[in-house]
Structures are given as structure tokens and as C-alpha cells.
């Protein structure tokens, strides 16, 4: 009975006349005809693939399958300094892109939401980087970051600051900032490399438009009456923003934090173009790619990919939990 319900068979199946049963079967077959292309493609390249990925990760597998090794790949991952390092790099990347990106986007969206001149123009402009391919954008930023002829070093020298090596600088930014004072930090406190920060800045630039658009949609959904009532009661613009707009936007922010975090964990194109071989910019995605592509270690790479999957799942669950407690839906 319960099973029938789960399989969407009509509850009175056993008592149904034969012609109605036949009709249900016929309609089911018809529906599967409609679903066939989707089921074949998603079934093979997504659903089967995920189980296949687990299977691969349990084997020593370079170009071809070699031998079953159980969880050895996973055990090796935990001991692999390169893997652990890539986790650290990924965390810096996420922490660098998500909060700054969202705060900037919120600021821009709030200003663009006002009835100002040139709104449409700005909206188009801020969105442009998002439709631009990351490969092309990364090539442009790489050129701006060029230590010899780049425009950023021109700006620094004009401001009387020392030129930087940008994407070619593997030193941590905290260390770089404190070096003139003669302070040497231990490796763990040196911070993300300047190269990684360069990639973070470029990624924020690239993703800003999407976040702005979603925030604008969120702002449009806030009832005007609340803000106006507060203004009539003498609240300052900042007070309205801080105590009405921000709390009422929390579902949007919550959504964007999840999306932006997941995307940050998966960033690949810009890092591949701007700094493919620098260990200080090797995020987990790059590690998976290099393990598989350059070193032809499919089994080990698949295990690393499963680790990424688990991290993303746990993060999503955690954020959902937190979200349920903290998010105000204004009701």
C-alpha cells in the first residue's frame, strides 16, 4: 500500500477495473517516452557517474583500472601535504571572495535601487563582467597584473608605492605588509599569497553583477511601507538600512551566501589561466584537475573529488540549519 503510494500507483489499484489499469499503464509508458532522453543522459552522465566515481576512488587507477585498494586513496589524501595545502588555499579563497563580494554587491544594489540618473547604464555595466568568459577576463587581468609592463604597477609607482609582482608573488600578504617593518611571520601566519589575493580580486569583479542583480530582486520584494513608516518616524537613512533593509534581505543574503560559497569552492577557469602551476593558488578544484590531468591518477583524483563533494554537502546542510534559525522572513 505504502509502496504503491510511493511509486505513484493509484491507491485503489487492486479494485480498479481492467480498462482503467490499462490506461494507467499506457499513460505511464507515454510519460517514460517523454522522459527517455533526459533519463538516458542524466542517468548515464550524472547518476551512474556518481556511483562510478565512488568505484573509481576505491581503486588504483591511472590510465586504466589496476587494482582494488579499498579506502587507501582516502587515507593517502589525509596524509598528503599537497591536498591539505590545497584545502587551506581553498578556504582563503572562499573567505576572500564571499563576504567582500556580498558586502560590495549589497552596497551597489542599495544605491542602484534609488531613483537615480543612469541606473540602467550602471546596471548593464556591473553585469557585463558576469557574462564575460572567465578565460578572457583572466587573460586581461593577468595583463594588468604583469609586473614589468602592467597598468597596476604603473598606478603604484604614480602613488609613490613600491611595484609588486602580483600573480608571480608566492609570499603571504600579511608577511608582505609587515616585511618593511622587519617582521618575519611564521609560515602559518603569512596569510594567502599575493597571487591568490589577485585571483580573489578578479573573481569578486567577475561575480559582482550576479550578486547585485539578485540583491536588487530582493530589495524589490521588501514592502515600501515599512521603510517609509520608519522614515516618517524620523529614522536616519542608515538606521532604515541597518534595522529594516538588512534584516528583511536576510533570505536573499542567505541564498547568496550558499550559492557564492559553492561557486567559490568550484572556481577553476580563472585560476587555471592566471596561475596554473603556483602551489599557493592551487585550490581543491585545481588539485583534482592536476591529479587527474597532469599526473593521470584517476583513482586518487576521484577520491579528492569525493572529498570536495562531502565538504559541499556538509556546508549546505550546516548553512540550511543556521539559516532556519537566523533568517528573518519578515512575517
Amino acid at each position: 500500500m505504502d509502496l504503491l503510494h510511493w511509486l505513484d500507483v493509484p491507491a485503489d489499484w487492486r479494485r480498479m477495473p481492467a480498462h482503467r489499469r490499462r490506461r494507467f499503464v499506457r499513460e505511464s509508458l507515454g510519460a517514460y517516452g517523454f522522459l527517455l532522453p533526459t533519463l538516458v543522459i542524466i542517468g548515464v552522465f550524472h547518476l551512474f557517474a556518481i556511483f562510478f566515481a565512488v568505484y573509481i576512488s576505491l581503486h588504483k587507477w591511472s590510465i586504466l583500472k589496476e587494482s582494488y585498494v579499498g579506502l587507501a586513496n582516502y587515507a593517502d589524501l589525509l596524509r598528503d601535504p599537497q591536498f591539505r595545502h590545497s584545502l587551506g588555499v581553498t578556504l582563503w579563497y572562499v573567505v576572500g571572495t564571499v563576504p567582500v563580494g556580498l558586502v560590495l554587491a549589497l552596497g551597489v544594489a542599495v544605491l542602484l535601487f534609488r531613483p537615480i540618473r543612469g541606473r540602467g547604464f550602471y546596471r548593464t555595466l556591473f553585469f557585463l563582467p558576469y557574462v564575460t568568459s572567465l578565460v578572457a577576463a583572466a587573460a586581461v587581468w593577468q595583463w594588468m597584473y604583469n609586473p614589468d609592463y602592467g597598468v597596476l604597477n604603473l598606478a603604484l609607482t604614480k602613488l609613490g608605492l613600491p611595484p609588486q609582482r602580483w600573480l608571480l608573488e608566492p609570499q603571504g600578504v600579511f608577511q608582505l605588509a609587515l616585511a618593511p617593518a622587519g617582521i618575519t611571520l611564521p609560515a602559518w601566519a603569512a596569510g594567502p599569497s599575493l597571487a591568490l589575493v589577485c585571483i580573489i580580486v578578479m573573481s569578486i569583479w567577475s561575480g559582482l553583477g550576479f550578486n547585485v542583480i539578485v540583491y536588487l530582486a530582493g530589495l524589490g520584494a521588501i514592502p515600501k511601507e515599512l521603510q517609509e513608516a520608519a522614515r516618517v518616524d524620523g529614522a536616519s537613512e542608515w538606521g532604515v538600512f541597518r534595522h529594516i533593509t538588512v534584516p528583511l534581505l536576510s533570505p536573499t543574503t542567505f541564498f547568496l551566501v550558499i550559492i557564492a560559497t559553492i561557486r567559490a569552492f568550484q572556481a577553476f577557469n580563472q585560476i587555471y589561466v592566471m596561475a596554473p602551476n603556483d602551489p599557493t593558488t592551487q585550490t581543491l578544484t585545481l588539485f583534482i584537475f592536476q591529479t587527474f590531468y597532469a599526473s593521470s591518477r584517476a583513482g586518487y583524483g576521484a577520491a579528492a573529488a569525493m572529498a570536495l563533494f562531502v565538504i559541499l554537502l556538509l556546508l549546505t546542510i550546516l548553512q540550511m540549519r543556521l539559516g532556519q534559525e537566523r533568517v528573518s522572513y519578515g512575517e
Partner: peptide, 16 residues
């Protein structure tokens, strides 16, 4: 399947 990151599919799909 919306939850599966592309990186996880990369290796099995390539082998397929």
C-alpha cells in the same frame, strides 16, 4: 543530481 558538483563527474564522465 543538482547537488553533485561538476568536479565529481569529471573523472567518471571522462572514462565513460
Amino acid at each position: 543530481t543538482l547537488m553533485i558538483p561538476f568536479e565529481v563527474l569529471l573523472i567518471p564522465d571522462y572514462i565513460l
